[in-house]
């Protein structure tokens, strides 16, 4: 029973341990996203955003490693008919929305959003210091 002193034993299996880490990483990504959206200070928002991105990267790496170790079953592939059905439905929705936008905005459409001025402003928010390193 105690033949291997060096290899410590865990109550949980390796698969249980990494599954717990994977689900915690998923939760932490969501929490960083929430924290970023509710931050007032731009520097703190940037910190949360970077931590979210880094955590998301780790979650992806762990998922891939688990899949290679046969510890993760992905859901079965969706049927072609189902893709066709959704494609058709959302093409209709897209068309209706295009009509709606045409009626609502008319000639104004080109002037409302996405003016070059606003794009320049949003670029200025970056800079200052960042904590993450």
């Amino acid at each position: 029973m105690y033949q291997q002193q060096q290899q410590k034993q865990s109550i949980l299996t390796e698969e249980d341990l990494v599954s717990t880490i994977l689900s915690d990483l998923k939760r932490v990504v969501r929490e960083y996203a929430t924290a970023a959206t509710e931050s007032t200070c731009p520097d703190i928002r940037q910190l949360f955003t970077k931590l979210m991105d880094s955590t998301l990267t780790m979650q992806g790496q762990l998922f891939q490693a688990m899949q290679q170790a046969n510890m993760y079953n992905t859901s079965s592939p969706v049927l072609r008919q189902e893709l066709d059905k959704q494609m058709k439905q959302y093409q209709q929705i897209k068309q209706k929305t295009a009509q709606f936008l045409q009626q609502t905005l008319g000639q104004q459409q080109n002037q409302t959003m996405y003016t070059p001025n606003m794009q320049q402003q949003s670029g200025q928010q970056q800079g200052s210091q960042n904590y993450y390193n």
């Binding site: 929490e31 929430t34 924290a35 931050s39 007032t40 200070c41 703190i44 931590l51």
Partner: peptide, 17 residues
């Protein structure tokens, strides 16, 4: 421009730690 930390921000930071 750095601003004083809000209570909410501190709570998120503490939870994250």
């Amino acid at each position: 421009m750095i601003q004083p930390m809000t209570g909410k921000e501190l709570e998120y930071i503490a939870d994250s730690m």
